[in-house]
Design a protein around this nucleic acid. Structure first.
Lengths: 168, 168
DNA sequence: CTGTTTGTTCGGTTCACTCCGAACAACCGA
DNA sequence: TCGGTTGTTCGGAGTGAACCGAACAAACAG
């Protein structure tokens, strides 16, 4: 009974992770695979993940690669046994979010900013409406870049503290 | 020539907005429609947006609705003239990001947190591994919720200042 | 060397999403 | 009342992504 309850609770949270994965632009399978690894006591191999999740081997292979690249899970090659690679979940969610920020948000901001700067360079300084709009955009994106750069170097606790203790 | 250059610069930035839209989970058409409105001096009606973007009327109708719901553009019913509804872009990007955070990120965090709490309530306090994992998750999400709540009440300048002046 | 286990790659299917065109509803001016 | 304009809704075509199964490559055990 308590065993069942625990399984139900675990399943609910994994379903929630599936949904979160979709919000962050990943597939549902990615959420489930991460969830199973999150609750697993030991590292799991691909065949074990197939058993636990019900997905096809090829799906597990593809998804684990992208999850590894993003940094949500870690890959260990266990040289010893028959099984060759094993996966563990990164449990420090703050690290994951930092990575997402660094890799996606910051990158997105940077390319946009570069486009704006290039467009601005081509327009000589006749301050038409167009020019002002672009100027506005540039200022905003420079602010954003600064904020994200700073924030991504903080720990969660530091960030929270910085915000809580700030007196306007 | 300068006219052409300006058009080219504008087009580049709008293309960049199309790409950003995809990153944020919107369609390319949403990015273009927002971009055209961003650079327009006056509010535009749906037929005018059809001319400017080349999209079908129905597409404009659907996309403007979702953009309005999200808060990226504003809808004005100009009671006077023949045209009935007109749209303007929200140019304060920080407002947009705040809304996104409030509506999506915070909501996502809250539902996850609620799921975790409910799961935790069902498990009595036998501190098994499962229980510890869930406890861990809960702490993290409570931190996240606090951070997002605080951050979404700051202006961009305040946030930047808070981060820059924080001394660890 | 042969059989088994593991992991990757490739082609195909299914499904959701985007966008379009057509039909419809609401409203205005003659 | 009747055309003209505007906006919404609906069904369908095209497209991309998720996932699967099969084929293939690599490594180990016997």
């Amino acid at each position: 009974m308590s065993e069942d309850d625990r399984a139900v609770a675990r399943e609910r949270i994994i379903e929630s992770m599936e949904q979160s994965a979709e919000v962050y632009g990943l597939s549902r399978s990615a959420g489930r695979i991460y969830g199973v690894l999150y609750f697993s006591d030991e590292p799991l191999s691909i065949p074990e993940l197939v058993d636990e999740t019900g997905y096809a081997k090829s799906t597990i292979s593809n998804v684990t690669r992208t999850l590894t690249r993003i940094g949500l899970i870690h890959r260990r090659s266990s040289a010893g046994g028959g099984r060759r690679v094993q996966y563990t979940a990164e449990r420090e969610i703050w690290f994951i979010l930092q990575d997402v920020f660094q890799q996606y948000v910051q990158r997105e901001i940077q390319t946009t900013l570069r486009t704006i700067q290039r467009a601005q360079a081509q327009l000589p300084d006749e301050s038409e409406t167009e020019g002002e709009r672009i100027e506005e955009l540039r200022d905003t994106y420079e602010d954003l870049q600064e904020i994200v750069t700073l924030a991504s170097n903080f720990t969660a606790a530091e960030l929270r503290d910085a915000l809580e203790s700030y007196d306007r």
